[in-house]
Design a protein around this nucleic acid. Structure first.
Lengths: 349, 349
DNA sequence: TTGAAAGCGCTAACAA
DNA sequence: TTGTTAGCGCTTTCAA
């Protein structure tokens, strides 16, 4: 099986020997089975005995060996999290929510990073399966399709979160990018803005295409004209935000009175560019960003209204659904969760 | 003992039964012991037998149960990472390095978040000990002292990284903040700057005090005068960077020709403020930041020279030292690792 | 060169 | 109410 021969750390130091259930039994003057029953709050035991056993166990510093327990119970109370985004900005809140949820259930999470390396990913899956994880969560850098985890993990519960498995039977949890865009544009329209431009990232991101769709449909819903010169795909940077503003203002089109930006970096760049041209945000041009990344939204001048993908909640839900699946539920399909609008000064208030 | 009664997910679904070593033995027509020997590249086996066994194992999709192996070998090939920084900006690169290092050794990492909650931390340690982790890595939000992990984990190898255990025997790995500050000021002095100010964060951070010490000592080494009006502690924000610049330029002191900032956010704020006052960076005022956080350094105008704490390498080393300790080495004490200078336009080039 | 068997630490069904 | 015992899946010593 392991045909690689990388040396593993060897134990040469003193074994840290901990008391076993056997020791507890001996000290308490009862049988092993009785101790087990007492510690697992099982069936029928004299209250006195139970308490004595628990006391002895505590005194000895007994801590049951989960490995042995799992071996028997066929459940390890452990899940693997595989990320293809080397613990990046989007993975963090997801991890946080996931970990929180699982900790509540007394489960623990193995972190595995497999940034764009399918072989490494396979190795991780291999190890995790060896450790008999009860399930897997897969997360990715971008919300585009990715190949499913493959047949290695056949039958193992898997949840894809912020990552879209290219397998209709798999459960994929994603933010509703389109709905988020609608929220943004609706908000601007309600403020009375008539000329809303959309500056965004590269179109090969599924998220960009979805947000564009939301942008156009919300414009239509608000009976606002659609002008293709107002749609500017580009890259995810502040510099692009600044440049896009230059193009809009120096171009032949009428200047917009609002910007919906594909992320907060673009939005911040746009805000800077507008200020430097003497235009006021929000009175001349209102701005909505995307991601609600505090590092950007709070530091920008003025602070940015933004769309929050609620990634922490998404991570938490991934944990909940995974537990459902571990408990035997059959779940699947692509599911999108709503974004929310966070209003700050860049759209007035 | 678990005296809490939170329900754990229960297995009700179909058991995913995998072939055991027993199945392999049966199919290959040999004894269990022989299979074990074959798969673990152990001692004396007929080549033919070994190959046959390996073939059968592969065909059956046999994957040894690490839980059972660990039970016997008394090593789980698993470590716990406890963070008190809810997977924040500084924890990420550390995790990345750590995970990379341990993956090379075929070990896996349990992620535990215990943001400022000692009870939660204790619960995590408890669980990890139950899972018989081979060691623990503890990381924190700020490089200030924290109480050690307590007697629960007595005898277990522990490495504190980017966190300073209040226990001289514990191994703590930290960036050399003072040395980093020296690098920055030295660099500015070498560029011929004479009036170098230091805008930084709150003094209750040990890092702030250390960097200040480095700032003053490097000034002295360069035979530059020390002016207390040039030392401005404050908060870790862009807004503070802007305000500090205002104070320096509007104050009674002579304007500085260089700024060493306690982090990149302050540096960016300072750069913005200078530009908006018509001063050029770097020709009028050069700037060095701290953290080398690309989100800030690259987006700033001009891009910022900064001090890198090499956190990923620190994480990697934490893994290496932990493995040394697991292998029986006795390691301890507070150790600081060098920062490095990354030069960009804000100090010319 | 291979097989048999005694555990690793714990659970759970069955006896006493 | 408590004890006995047969495993869980694997490793390793000792015999064959």
């Amino acid at each position: 099986m392991d045909d690689e021969t990388k040396s593993s750390a060897e134990v040469t130091g003193p074994e840290r020997l901990r008391p076993t259930i056997r020791d507890v039994a001996r000290h308490a003057g009862v049988s092993i089975g009785t101790v087990s029953k007492a510690l697992n709050k099982g069936g029928n035991l004299a209250l006195e005995t139970r308490e004595r056993i628990i006391a002895v166990a505590k005194e000895l510093g007994f801590r049951p060996n989960s490995l042995a327990q799992s071996l028997h119970r066929k459940q390890s109370f452990t899940v693997g999290l595989i990320s293809t985004d080397s613990f990046g900005r989007f993975t963090m809140p997801i991890m946080e929510g996931l970990e929180e949820c699982l900790t509540d259930r007394r489960m623990q999470v193995f972190m595995c990073n497999a940034t764009d390396d399918p072989a490494l990913e396979a190795q991780h899956v291999e190890s995790l399966l060896g450790k008999r994880v009860d399930g897997l969560v897969v997360t990715a850098r971008r919300a585009d399709k990715r190949p499913p985890i493959g047949p290695l993990a056949h039958g193992l519960p898997i949840v894809y979160v912020f990552s879209h498995a290219d397998d209709p039977d798999a459960l994929s949890l994603l933010p509703d990018d389109e709905g988020g865009a609608v929220l943004a544009v609706q908000h601007l329209a309600e403020l009375g803005r008539k000329r809303i431009a959309h500056i965004t990232g590269p179109e090969h991101f599924e998220a960009v295409r979805l947000r564009r769709a939301g942008y156009f449909s919300a414009l239509a819903a608000a009976r606002l004209p659609r002008d293709d010169a107002y749609y500017l795909p580009g890259v995810w940077s502040e510099a692009w935000g600044r440049e896009a503003v230059a193009r809009l203002l120096d171009g032949r089109v009428q200047s917009p009175d609002a910007l919906f930006c594909g992320n907060d970096q673009i939005a911040r760049g746009a805000a800077d560019a507008l200020r430097e041209r003497g235009l006021d945000v929000p009175s001349d041009v209102a701005i909505v960003g995307f991601d609600n990344w505090d590092v950007m939204t709070l530091a920008a001048r003025p602070p940015l209204t933004s769309i929050d993908m609620n990634l922490k909640a998404l991570g938490r839900e991934a944990g909940e659904r995974l537990i459902d699946m571990i408990s035997g539920e059959k779940l699947g399909g692509l599911q999108r969760r709503p974004c929310s609008l966070v209003v700050r000064e860049s759209t007035g208030r």
